[in-house]
Structures are given as C-alpha cells and as structure tokens.
Amino acid sequence: MNIKHYLDSTYLKTAKQAGVSEKENNQIVYDFVQEAIEEKFILVMLRPDKIVVAKKQLVAAASKVLIGTVIGFPEGTFSIEEKINEAKTAIENGADELDFVINFEAFKLGKIDLVKKEVLQGTKLALAHRKKIKWIIEVAALNGSQIIQLTSLIKNVVIANFTEKDFDSVFVKSSTGFYKTSNGLPNGATIPSIIAMLENAFPLQVKASGGIKTKEEALQMIQLGVKRIGTSAAKSISDGILYSGNY
C-alpha cells in the first residue's frame, strides 16, 4: 500500500490566519504545491482563490497531482445558490474535486429539506462535470446520533437520485479542521466518528480529515476503511516522522 495515494495534502489558511503577508502566503502555497508534485500525493487541497495559479504550476510540471478546493468554507451556512456559484467558478478555474461544507447548522435546526436540496444540487453539479464531491459534515459540531443521521441523509439522497456508477465519486468527509471546540475537545476526525460514518455512508466513500498528524493515525483510519485523508502533515505522515507544524 502506498499511503501517498490516500493523502489530500491540505493548506487552507488565509494570510491573516497564518500571520503572514499575502506575498508570504502565496509562497507557502507555491511550496506546498511543489511538495505535492515532488511527493506525488494524490491531491493538493487549497482555497478557491489559489486554484488558477496552482493549476499553472501543476501543468508546467506535467504533474498528475489533482487540485481540490473547499466550497462554503468553513462554516457551511452559505445559501445553496452561493455554494453552487462558488463551485461553478472553481470548476471553471480547474478544480478536480470539490469539498462542500454541508449546512450542518440548518440540519441541527431540523431544516432537512434544505439540506437534502443542497446535497442534490451540489452532487448533480459535480457529477455533471465529472468531478468528485465530498460533503463535510463537521463531526465536532454534531453528537453521535446526528453524525449517523446526517451521513445517512447524504447517502440516501445520492442513492435515490444517482446511479451506482456515481457512488465512488461521492464522499462523506468528517471535518474542516477549522471548527472551534470548547474544553480542548478534538475538532476533527476521531475513531468513533469515523466508524459511525463508515457504517452509515456505504456505498459512498469516507474521507477523514482534521487532526491527523502521524503515520500511525493515518494507517489506523485507512485500516478502518477510509479512502482519503485530508491533512496538512502529508509529507510528515508519508515519511513517518513527527509533524512539527501547528495546523
């Protein structure tokens, strides 16, 4: 098994969040993409405004590394129309995969029809353009029952509206990595949350993201059954060394 084939190497900080200038942040993105090229990770995950320049870099290197981006990030409360427009622009700019933050707050308020509509429209757009789509449910914002219910909702919408050949292109993803928790609780993937997702997402695939920093953690997730891992520590994980970053 080549662990690199599971890794979505991820950098989603704005310059302000990173505490650097825009120029410095652009250099970080460039170096991140270059690392993905050299390491042959499956995908580099960036914010939408970084797609165009990253695509040029990948094309210039004749690299097979894919570009993923986030939609409705990180809070997920954008309207369906805003998310669809953002996704269309991302596709036009060269994104290969779209990680939508589902409106988990609407779900928690019982606005189930809105959430179902969002899943249907977002998935339809992605599949029409032959893109993979991943629905981020933000497990740290949900309790155990809600994780099961929201994962099942996504699965049921996809099964009811698309064909079996489409299922491998739709994922349920754990986390943005940006959710603020209290009392030092994990804000990303945990073993219980991933197990709940795997048990209720099938035949859709699962992506674990948020807080995965070591090769041992990544391998544990893969052994459970996840098909992708989103991490800012992709090189450290693939090299089997301790990640020294703070994101």
Rank of each mutant, 00 (worst) to 15 (best):
N200P: 09
D166Q: 09
I194M: 08
K207F: 00
K116R: 13
K132P: 05
E216H: 00
N85Y: 02
N183V: 01
Q220H: 12
F162Y: 00
E86K: 04
N200G: 06
T190V: 11
A208S: 13
L125G: 03
A128W: 01
F171M: 14
G210A: 07
G177I: 00
Q220P: 00
K131E: 06
W135S: 07
I133F: 00
I136D: 10
K165I: 10
F167K: 08
T163Y: 04
L224M: 07
E86S: 12
A189K: 11
D96A: 07
T190F: 08
A106R: 10
G94C: 09
G94T: 12
S145T: 13
K207D: 02
L224K: 05
K180L: 12
L114Y: 14
I154S: 04
V115P: 15
V206Y: 04
I136T: 07
S169M: 10
G210R: 05
I222P: 13
S175A: 15
E138D: 14
Q223V: 11
I147W: 00
L150Q: 03
N161G: 12
V206F: 03
G144D: 15
K213S: 13
A201I: 04
E105G: 11
V170G: 02
E97T: 13
E138P: 14
N200Y: 03
Q146P: 10
G144E: 15
L125N: 04
I91L: 08
V157I: 11
K165Y: 09
H129S: 06
N161I: 08
K207H: 00
G110W: 04
N161Q: 12
E217S: 15
W135H: 14
S175D: 14
A106E: 07
F100E: 09
K131L: 09
L125K: 02
Q205F: 00
A87L: 05
P203K: 13
I148H: 01
D166G: 05
N183H: 09
V139R: 11
K213L: 14
E216R: 02
P192C: 07
T89E: 13
A90F: 01
N200V: 03
K173R: 05
G110A: 07
I194E: 02
N103S: 11
E199V: 06
L224W: 00
I154A: 09
I133H: 02
A95G: 13
V119S: 12
A106H: 08
K124A: 12
E97V: 12
R130K: 14
G210T: 06
